[in-house]
Amino acid sequence: MYNYLVRRLGFMLLTLLFVTVITFAVTNILPGDVALLILGPNATDQSIQALQAQLGLDKPLYVQYIDWVLGLLQGDMGTSLRFDEPVAQLIGEKLGRSLLLATAATAIAVFFALPLGVVAAVKQNELPDLFASMFGFIGISIPIFLWGLVFILVFAVWLGLFPTGGYVPPSEDPIGTLTHLVLPASAMGFALTAYIMRMTRSSMLEVLSEEYIKLARAKGMTQRVVVLKHALQNAIIPVITVVAFQFSYAFGGVVVLEEVFFWPGIGRLTLTAIQSRDIPLLQGCIIVVALIYMLSNLTADLLYGYFDPRIRYGGDD
């Protein structure tokens, strides 16, 4: 475990380093001169040069890169060109909201997907399996934003149960935060359910054909014990990977859902950064999303250890 953790953290740092290089390179290739963008089309050459010097844009690229990385290490992500605020502060505000949405969506998905997947596997090719599969396919094949629109229409417009969109900070109105969270989290959770359920089902099917399941039956264990105690704990291990992946997807990848629900998260912030050529902000967003990806994968790997004793002791004998 100890060696394993050291190795994993080492790899993570290395990956992060690559991400910074790529992020930096790509954002600098993007067309459009930042100084020109800020000053507008009527700016003089002199004022542009002055601004470039002020922003450090006249230095060689590698110096800019090193400055940027050193800044990152100290938590300084630069200043947003568009908002004229520190990037770290801007991201910090949205980070919590995106994490909240992603966590809620993943929790909803897991809550429905695990039991459905288990039932589908146990009743393979029977009616419950067919229903679960159909449910899964519908969830997968219709885009997330459409679910968002459907949910808004049904639960907000027709039934009036929840607000149509927006966000209220919990410090002001915790109940409001929750009511605003329900629809976007459910829409996203519904789409994620399908993937997690399919994975649970196939993983359970595999485990249910293992020899130790046959032995558990031969010992006289009831179906309930065989499925929930003997099979599920083994079957859940590959599911964790999918859940971790879905979580990071829900965190950074669903810009369109944030748009539909006016949820001011990282996704919308990234979109704004791209539209306004706000390079420091864009860089910051990419780095944070990458970091969340890596952390959720690390969490998944550590969870393996919790469920699978072979991994728990595997690294340190």
Binding site: E211, Y212, L215, Q233, D308
Partner: peptide, 23 residues
């Protein structure tokens, strides 16, 4: 189920795959 493992027990073939790895 009350007979299996109780009155009549089965000892399976493959010791490597017949024990549940997570218990």
């Amino acid at each position: 189920q009350r007979v299996r493992g109780n009155k009549i027990a089965l000892v399976p073939q493959d010791p490597m795959s017949s024990l549940n790895p997570v218990l």
